[in-house]
Structure formats: C-alpha cells, structure tokens
Amino acid sequence: MSNIGMIIEERAADIGNFLVGRLLPFRQKRMVGPFIFIDHMGPAELKDYQNLDVGPHPHIGLSTLTYLFEGSVMHRDSLGTAVEIQPGAVNWMTAGRGVVHSERTPEYLRHTDKRLHGLQIWVALPKELEQMDPSFTHVEAKDIPAWEQEGATIKLISGTAFGKTSPVPVYSPQYFIKIVTPKGQKLNIGQHLYGESGLYILEGSIICDGHTYGPRQILIAKDSTLCSFETTDDTTVFIFGGEPLPEERFIYWNFVSSNRDVIEQAKLDWQQQSFPLIPGETGFVPLPQQSPNVKLKDIK
C-alpha cells in the first residue's frame, strides 16, 4: 500500500504586490505537525523598478521561518531588529503575544534587476507559549547543520532529526530538512522522522510506489517512519513536520491561536493601531475584511 496519504498542489495567492504559491493551509489538511502555513515565493525576475514591499503587518501565536534560495530581503520588526536575509540563512521570528514586521527589497538593490526565490513558513506555538514575549533569531547559512549521506546533501534547517539539532530555537518537536541529490538516489529516512511528515518537491522529481511526482507538490505521508523514495538527478526536496499540537488552531490573516477570542482581540488591536511600532517604518497593511488565508466561515 502506498505511504502517500495526500497530494497538495501549489496554488497561486496574492500577498499585495507579489504573487506566491500557497501550499498550506489546505482545506483537507490545515497543518502538518506544527507547520500551519507555507508560501513558495518566486522564482521571480524583478526589474530595476520592481521591488518587494510588504509593509508593517502583525503576527500572533506563531514563529515565522524565512528561507531564501535566491535574492535578498530586508527584515525590520517592532523589537528593533533590522537584518538582511540572504540565501541559506534563517530568519526565525517568534510573534508570541504580538509583533509587527516588514519585508522589503534592500535599499542597495532597489534600482537594479534582481531575482527573488524562497519559502515563507509559519509554525504554530504550543498553547502555553502562544502569549510568550516576542523574539527574533538570525542564523547564518554556515551555522546550519549540513552533511553528506547516501549520495545526498542534507541540511537540518530547523528542529531535531538524524541525531542532530539545528541552532534555530523551536518550541515543539519538529523538523525542517533540505535534501539535494545531484544524482538519482534511493533514500530511506523514515527511521529519522516522527509525528506527521510532508515532502515538498522544489526541483526534479521523486518516484514512490511506482508513481513519479514533480515540482510544486507536497506529499503527505501516512506514516512518517516509513518515509522512503527515489529521486531523479538534480532533485531538491524539503521534508517538514513533527509532533502535531493537541489543540485545534484558528487562523485569520496573520493571526494564529487556539482561542478565537484572542484572534478577535488581535483584529481590534490592529485596527486601533495598538500593536508596537517598527522603528523607521511608516504606514501599515490594513486588516482585510475577510482573511485571505481562511474564509470567515472556517473560523468556528
């Protein structure tokens, strides 16, 4: 019997002045382990007059993980952080009870042609930590654990797996793993995984149970401990997941919580502009009348 329980196709989504490929949430699968939101940005060719400009916007109840393949993004937040993220590094921002940030093309790139390509990920916090103090951690590419195994290059971007732990400070049992195979390989990694597990194909293809799957798909495993597959040449995949959180999570726009009332209060606080400000930033992204992530009727 196939170990693939579900296939999620990438769907186009508009985040303001930039189109992305939405992977999670999905109507039939809201979360994979604690992972509640994944956007694939690009690859986008931006002209000298085109820039990424996601203005000040809030988050609660989650950690954001930004991982770039190409390009550069300037991150600023209400904690006073101002950090440029480049390919292979990790921006890990924990919103907790509330944080505001912006994401823009750095000033020195704003008048040149450039490319932007990467992943934007949200990881829900455990219920007891949803109201924790916000924090920010930047981990350089050189500090991400990486090794060769069975003809593949493996990077443990966050979490714990393969007997290793990433320096990214996660708050529940989870993993986010990059696997690159220059030559086709058979990989059996289930013994290193736990909880729920999803496999995202960025480039190339994989063969599993006699079927071939290509880019821009997430394959959800029925049993993560049975995760095995064969890759073709020049394939890049990401394995993500971990122990699911026991409580249901609600999501509205950039707000995640196990408590609907907390989301309603966050909506009111943002409308009244009582969230903290970002030093050096002006303006803000208005609260949408209906969440672009989940329809109002889905918040029960």
Score class of each variant (00 low, 15 high):
F18I: 04
S63Y: 04
Y194K: 09
Q191L: 04
I201P: 00
I85S: 13
V139G: 02
L46V: 02
G198A: 14
K127E: 15
T231E: 10
G33F: 08
P173C: 10
P292Y: 07
S274E: 14
N254F: 01
P292N: 10
P182A: 13
Q265E: 15
R27K: 14
P292E: 10
D113P: 03
F162N: 06
W147I: 09
L129S: 13
M93W: 08
V90K: 05
R260D: 11
V180N: 07
T235V: 09
S205F: 12
F136C: 00
S197W: 00
L68H: 01
H211W: 07
D223Y: 12
Q217K: 15
R249N: 14
G198P: 01
Y252I: 00
Y252S: 08
R110I: 01
E243I: 12
Y175E: 08
S63M: 09
K297R: 14
M1G: 10
A266E: 06
L277W: 01
Q149P: 04
H138L: 08
T181W: 04
S291K: 09
Y67V: 03
P292K: 07
I60H: 02
F275L: 08
F176C: 08
G280P: 01
P276G: 11
Q273V: 00
T232S: 15
G98C: 04
M132F: 02
Y108G: 05
K267G: 03
H101L: 07
N51A: 08
L79C: 05
